[in-house]
């Protein structure tokens, strides 16, 4: 008996190890992530390269959501573009305390510019002061710190997503209809702003559109599935669904299909994931539009950091320095223009 059990256990564990070893890591459909750029100066640096490397620190809050994973990927891609850039990337494992320590370590190691996407803007404000005192310019990415201790801020427009969604839905429904809102995680500024922009704009420009219900699904596809099923049950007449996130729409779409309502309503997302853009391109999917909040901003942040270190401005502008704030457009992506944005899909 014991030997049989032992044999079976050995087989199971061995098989699993074998499988992992064979299949390797990574997602077969997704693009393979470029290898992490640790240091480009090891081999064959061109003689024309500047005397010293630009050392850029990049502090990310974690990578457990498709969007955040793409942030790290794009930062690496941007650094790989320039032979004179040396990128150190840290992962905050979704806690402000770990991220604070990350930043301190980066300062200790010696960097020329720091890019930081804070886990929580408020909690990481003190460490931003430390960065300023160390004389390192800070590029604040996406979530705002609560002080002025940044050299440049670059981020998306959450309020703008709500505005763009309200206008798109209002126009398509000719100002008359019922909408349900699948919100993100309750209690954070991203969710609040995406809801507020939507409500403000509907009230001002499309008072005939009624928001029947707004429920949070925490940016999780699984929860979005349940919440959408329940809301469709409660509301027999829905013309559009405004969802805060493309990743969640995987669940929203399944719920709409299962309820056989996919011909009665359309869905909008936010972010600009590859999957969402493919759905939009198909045309016959209920997912008809998304509003950009693109992780390409991480690539731009690294580009900006390099310009700061080289004391350069942006090429096509007159100024000798980069702007203090850059707010990216929450562009409406529909079937008409989706081809322009496909390459940004994450």
């Amino acid at each position: 008996m014991k030997t049989v059990v032992g044999f079976v256990l050995g087989f199971v564990v061995g098989g699993l190890v074998f499988y992992f070893a064979l299949s390797g890591r990574g997602n077969p459909t997704g693009p393979t992530a470029p290898p992490p750029v640790q240091s480009c100066n090891l081999a064959g640096s061109p003689p024309a390269a500047p005397t010293r490397k630009v050392r850029i620190g990049f502090s990310s809050p974690g990578a457990d959501h498709g969007w955040l994973a793409a942030i790290a990927t794009n930062a690496r891609k941007a650094a790989a573009k320039f032979p004179d850039v040396e990128l150190s990337l840290t992962d905050g494992l979704n806690t402000s305390a770990k991220q604070m320590a990350d930043v301190e370590d980066l300062l200790q190691r010696g960097i020329d510019v720091l890019v930081m996407l804070p886990h929580s803007g408020e909690a990481l404000t003190p460490v931003a002061a430390k960065v300023r005192k160390a004389g390192v310019p800070l590029i604040n990415l996406d979530r705002r710190i609560a002080s002025e201790d940044f050299y440049c801020y670059i981020g998306g427009d959450n309020y703008g997503i709500g505005v763009a969604a309200a206008r798109y839905i209002g126009k398509r429904l000719n100002g008359q209809g019922n909408v349900i809102e699948i919100a993100g995680l309750a209690g954070i500024s991203v969710t609040r702003d995406r809801t507020k922009g939507f409500r403000d704009t509907l009230a001002k420009e499309y008072p005939g559109i009624r928001v029947l219900a707004s429920q949070p699904a925490d940016f999780l596809a699984e929860k979005a599935l349940t919440v959408t099923e329940n809301l469709l049950q409660a509301h027999p007449k829905v013309d559009a669904i405004y969802s805060h996130d493309d990743d969640m729409n995987v669940g929203v779409l399944q719920a709409v299909k299962a309820a056989k309502r996919d011909k009665d309503l359309f869905i909008t997302g936010a972010g600009g994931s590859r999957w969402a853009m493919e759905q939009i391109k198909k045309g016959d999917s209920p997912i008809q539009a998304t509003f950009l909040y693109n992780p390409s901003m991480a690539g731009s942040a690294v580009d900006l950091a390099r310009l700061v270190a080289l004391h350069r401005g942006m090429q096509d502008l007159w100024e000798k320095e980069i702007p203090r704030e850059i707010k990216l457009r929450a562009t409406t992506v529909t079937r008409e223009n989706v081809d322009n944005f496909l390459e940004l899909g994450y």
């Binding site: 890591r25 990574g26 997602n27 077969p28 459909t29 997704g30 992530a33 990578a63 457990d64 959501h65 498709g66 955040l68 994973a69 596809a221 990743d247 995987v250 999957w275």
Partner: peptide, 11 residues
């Protein structure tokens, strides 16, 4: 799970 999937969803 995060490491293997690189944080991504797969249809």
């Amino acid at each position: 799970a995060l490491w293997y999937s690189d944080g991504r969803q797969t249809v």
